[in-house]
Simulated scan of single mutants.
Amino acid sequence: MSKPELEFHAPSGPWEKPPGSAPGIRERTLAADADGAHRTALVRWAPGTDTSASGVAVHEHWEEVYVLDGDLHDLTLGETFAKDTYACRPPGMPHGPWTSDAGVTMLVVTYPDPAV
């Protein structure tokens, strides 16, 4: 399945809490295929968001993240990533947990591993 064909438009879908996410995290899906395996979303963390309770994240899909505004701090790496920084994570790559004192908005693209 592929994502829908969409010309430029103002996204208007709801900001929803992703299943199992930490308090303060909301996302707005921009495009997704029918089963959600290929997905593009805006993800917004409120000021003070802390994902420590979830521990280190590891998933079976590719994830690309571009920070549009704000910043987030990786507690494992001891580094803060700000606007205009980018991550490309292959399946199985550990990352986080994170905090964001001021809040952050990110563009997130996920897709399955084509080798599987």
Rank of each mutant, 00 (worst) to 15 (best):
L42F: 03
M93Q: 09
P91N: 01
G78L: 04
T80L: 11
W15Q: 14
D50Q: 06
P94F: 11
T29Y: 07
D33S: 13
T85P: 00
T80P: 09
A41T: 05
I25S: 04
K83Q: 14
D71V: 00
T105E: 14
I25D: 01
G78C: 05
P97C: 05
P114E: 02
G92I: 03
L72Y: 11
R39E: 10
A31F: 08
W98D: 00
D74N: 13
A57L: 12
A115C: 00
V58L: 03
G24I: 10
W15M: 15
P47E: 12
L72R: 13
M1Q: 07
Y111F: 15
A46C: 02
V108W: 06
A31L: 14
W15K: 14
T105S: 13
C88N: 11
E5C: 07
Y66R: 02
G13H: 07
A10R: 10
R26E: 15
R89P: 00
I25N: 03
V58M: 01
H95T: 06
F81I: 00
H9D: 02
T40H: 08
K17L: 08
P97L: 07
P94L: 10
L30P: 10
S54I: 07
Y86K: 05
K3Q: 10
R44W: 09
D71Y: 09
R28G: 02
M106W: 00
P91Y: 02
T51L: 06
T99I: 10
R26D: 13
A37C: 07
M1S: 13
D71Q: 12
A22N: 05
L107R: 01
L42T: 00
V104T: 08
L75N: 03
E64N: 09
R26Q: 14
H73A: 09
D74W: 05
V108A: 10
A87T: 15
L6G: 04
D69T: 06
Y86A: 04
P94I: 12
G48R: 03
F81V: 03
G24R: 05
P47W: 13
E63F: 04
E60S: 13
A53Y: 01
S12D: 15
R39T: 07
T99N: 02
H38K: 11
T85G: 01
T76S: 15
P23G: 14
G36C: 09
L72E: 06
L6A: 05
W62A: 04
G96M: 01
D101I: 08
V104L: 09
A115I: 03
F81Q: 08
A37S: 15
S54A: 15
P90C: 00
I25E: 05
L30V: 13
E27T: 09
P14K: 14
K3I: 12
V58Q: 03
K17H: 14
R89H: 04
K83H: 10
G103Q: 11
M93T: 14
G103V: 08
E79A: 14
D50E: 03
A53E: 13
A102G: 12
G96T: 01
A46Y: 01
R26N: 11
S2T: 15
M93W: 00
G48Q: 08
W98Q: 02
F81T: 03
P4W: 08
Y86S: 05
E5M: 10
E79L: 14
A57T: 14
R39N: 11
L75F: 04
K3A: 06
P94K: 12
